[in-house]
């Protein structure tokens, strides 16, 4: 789902850079309020943790393995704002050092996977799990948090691809950037994520959250009482 350089027009990547910067400013402010002066190494650690999570391949039923983007699981464990920063930093390092995702597309990639995805995952988890701490409920909530957030981000990416032939064409009327319009880009992105990658993300989120939920010291942000945070 990492958009490479060359597929998005400046009309798309520049506004998305703007939205991403604004969202990051809000997230940094929120996290500073929540974790006081300790925020810097904490966020660095969260970013490294989200990067490392993407390294793990988990066996999923059916004989295949898959790795999570991890936005939903990071949002459940660290909270949505910390997830926003940590996943963004992980994506920036991936683009700058490993060439995974474009530099001009960092704004778009971060908007899809670090801004929208953690919030969709977080809201889905809270909506389904509520105040319940039953393992079955947690598993179902974690699965749908991973699944829905992944599919949502994929459709968003498909939309960004699909509008390119509408907003950036040459004098001959042909596409200058991504050549696939909405009726091709959205189904292409949605179908593979609805049927394969969304399920993988959901299962990976379930396995990790379920394991974390079993621990005595309850490290999951979503289960913490706001009054006992600090």
């Amino acid at each position: 789902m990492h958009i490479p350089d060359g597929y998005l027009s400046p009309q798309t990547y520049l506004p998305l850079w703007g939205v991403f910067i604004a969202a990051m400013a809000v997230a940094v402010k929120k996290v500073r309020q929540e974790v006081s002066v300790r925020n810097i190494p904490y966020l660095g650690m969260a970013a490294a943790f989200s990067f490392i999570i993407m390294m793990f391949n988990l066996p999923v039923p059916g004989g295949t393995t898959g790795h999570a983007v991890g936005s939903a699981v990071i949002a459940i464990i660290f909270g949505p704002y910390a997830a926003m920063i940590s996943v963004s930093v992980a994506l920036i390092i991936q683009a700058l050092i490993f060439g995974d995702g474009g530099i001009t597309a960092i704004g778009a990639n971060c908007f899809n996977m670090a801004v929208c995805m953690p919030f969709v995952g977080w809201l889905t988890f809270r909506l389904i799990c509520g105040k319940s701490r039953k393992p079955g409920r947690i598993s179902v909530a974690a699965f749908f948090a991973g699944y829905i957030s992944m599919v949502f981000a994929a459709i968003l990416t498909g939309f960004e691809f699909g509008i390119q032939p509408l907003i950036a064409t040459g004098v001959d009327g042909n596409a200058l950037y991504c050549p696939y319009d909405l009726k091709i880009a959205i189904p292409a992105m949605a179908i593979e994520h609805l049927l394969i990658f969304g399920i993988v993300e959901g299962l990976v989120t379930t396995f990790i959250v379920r394991f974390f939920a079993k621990q005595e010291n309850q490290p999951i942000y979503a289960f913490r009482n706001k009054n006992t945070d600090e």
């Binding site: 990051m24 940094v28 925020n39 810097i40 190494p41 966020l43 660095g44 650690m45 970013a47 490294a48 943790f49 990067f51 490392i52 390294m55 920063i85 940590s86 930093v89 992980a90 920036i92 390092i93 050092i97």
Partner: peptide, 23 residues
């Protein structure tokens, strides 16, 4: 880019390789 964010990127970059060895 705020120094805070640059510092977070810098620490994450260092942590990644420490954690990678642990993994």
């Amino acid at each position: 880019i705020p120094d805070t964010l640059l510092m977070v990127i810098w620490l994450a970059y260092k942590f990644i390789f420490i954690l990678c060895k642990t993994v």
